[in-house]
Amino acid sequence: MNMQKISDHELVKMYQSGLDQALEELIKRHKRSIFTAIYLLVRDRSLAEDIFQEAFIKIINTLRSGNYNEEGKFSGWAVRVGRNLTIDYLRKMKRDTTITDSEGNDIFSYLVIAEEGTKEDKIIQYQTEEKIKELVKYLPEEQRQVVIMRHWGNMSFKEIGDATGVSVNTALGRMRYALNNLRKLMLEKGVQI
């Protein structure tokens, strides 16, 4: 069966009727956004893998139990499941999620950018992607949440406002500050944009 043209809504119904292929397609479609959202919060790939698995087990159990109430999009809901599990985990660990990395270092201490034409750039220049990941992690929590929900959760600003208990304009304002901050940090740290 060609699953690619089937909507998420239909895939959910098909999985609830017992078709594992439908679940496989849902994972294939949304694994990147869900995993990225988790990874950007925990900053640790191995931990992100564990939380991602846990999130999908919760998703599966909710779908199978018939408790899934699709008020919005599956992708937004699935990202929120991952995000909530991540936040629970971080709360338990009482980790500072704003300023430092998983080792407790200031993230900029290792954002070393070699000057062009030197030997060092072969050795110490990180990939641009890695640098921006670190920049996203440096954002204040409320701004990072909006970026993750809008960009990887595919939630509208209205949905984000509803989910976080703020107005649409506040959600938009947070996104605006996040983008402005990211741009400023990129320019300050010499990340090419």
């Binding site: 995993f35 990225t36 990874y39 641009t128 921006i132 996203v136 960009h151 990887w152 990211l182 741009r183």
Partner: peptide, 11 residues
């Protein structure tokens, strides 16, 4: 800036 965010996706 949004384009840069697009490039962040990992799996």
């Amino acid at each position: 800036t949004i384009k840069m965010l697009d490039e962040l996706e990992t799996e």
